[in-house]
Design a protein around this nucleic acid. Structure first.
Length: 281
DNA sequence: AATATATCCAACCGCACAGAT
DNA sequence: CATCTGTGCGGTTGGATATAT
């Protein structure tokens, strides 16, 4: 289609935000919620494009943003989730409360990559560099297959979350909606997941074992981070904040309200099964 | 003290996708 | 079905700051 950048319009400001602009944006969102980002700048009296406002809010002004250095625990989580999900920064950020995808991406590129390289681990494949070269072709392929399975599984999980969110919006909180919507997704996920394990996944390659010893268990990380930070934010909190109805997939799930515990339990069960079928250590 | 180089990170850019028309 | 619009995501850039020479 080839449309021009939204910031190309004459008169729109680019570059660093001033404290005054921040104030205007904050004040507007506090009073009206952001609504349509496209129309927000005009309403808020900002000479910025909507995209720029959205980015500023998400990465800097949002009240729940955690500032400061990443803890070793967070770093550990990032490494494991990156092994699982690759460069899907928003998905990784979903498991780290108060951290933005941009922040995690920056941290990865400036710190973690170097650390891994220094430790002799390829930051892309998460395999020890020396072993990656010495392994036979068969092992190499199996290892990649392992990661592929994990990524596929996570994709399926996220799709299920998104689907649940969409369905629950339509279901007007019907008490029976959640299991009906969710379980077919889970069945599909479980089937594809465990069929994968019985073929290639159970035979964990040497390199994967070593990487696992170095950086822990990605599935465990997913589980523990999920327990620390519910994938679905607390319904009552969001209602009080007035943030219900925003557009992110996980937040859209809040429509199911009181069924979220049940929803989380379903995922916990799947994750438990996953854990039971894996022998990472 | 002056300059060069490295590092960090906020912000921009372009693309893809979903929903609306 | 095609097109348009708004949003979100990941990759990249460039200015500010820190460190080395």
């Amino acid at each position: 289609m080839g449309r021009s950048s939204c910031c190309d319009n004459a008169g729109l400001k680019k570059g660093p935000w001033t404290p005054e602009e921040d104030k205007k944006l904050l004040a507007y969102i506090k009073e009206h919620d952001h609504g349509s980002w496209h129309s927000l700048p005009a309403k808020a009296g900002l000479r910025r494009c909507g995209k720029s406002c959205r980015l500023r809010w998400i990465n800097y002004l949002r009240p729940d943003i955690k500032r400061g250095k990443f803890s070793s625990d967070e770093e550990h989580t990032i490494i494991q989730l990156h092994a699982l999900l690759g460069n899907r920064w928003s998905a990784i950020a979903g498991h780290l409360p108060g951290r933005t995808d941009n922040e995690i991406k920056n941290y990865w590129n400036t710190h973690v990559k170097k650390k891994l390289a220094k430790a002799g681990v390829d930051p892309i494949t998460h395999k020890p560099v020396n072993l990656a070269f010495s392994l036979s072709g068969t092992h190499h392929i199996k290892s990649n297959t392992n990661l592929d399975h994990m990524a596929q599984w996570e994709s399926a999980r996220m799709e299920a979350e998104a689907r649940l969110g969409r369905e629950s919006k339509l279901s007007t909180f019907s008490a029976s909606a959640l299991p009906q919507v969710l379980m077919p997704c889970l069945d599909a996920v479980s089937d594809s997941m465990f069929s994968g394990y019985t073929t290639g996944f159970v035979e964990v390659s040497d390199s994967t074992e070593i990487a696992s010893e170095l950086f822990g268990d990605p599935v465990e990380t997913l589980m523990s981070s999920a327990s620390r930070v519910p994938v679905v934010p607390d319904f009552d909190d969001l209602r009080e904040e007035g943030s219900i109805g925003r557009s992110t997939e996980s937040e859209s799930c809040v429509g199911a309200g009181e069924h979220m515990d049940e929803y989380s339990n379903c995922w916990d069960q799947v994750l438990d099964q996953t854990q039971a079928h894996l022998s990472w250590n």
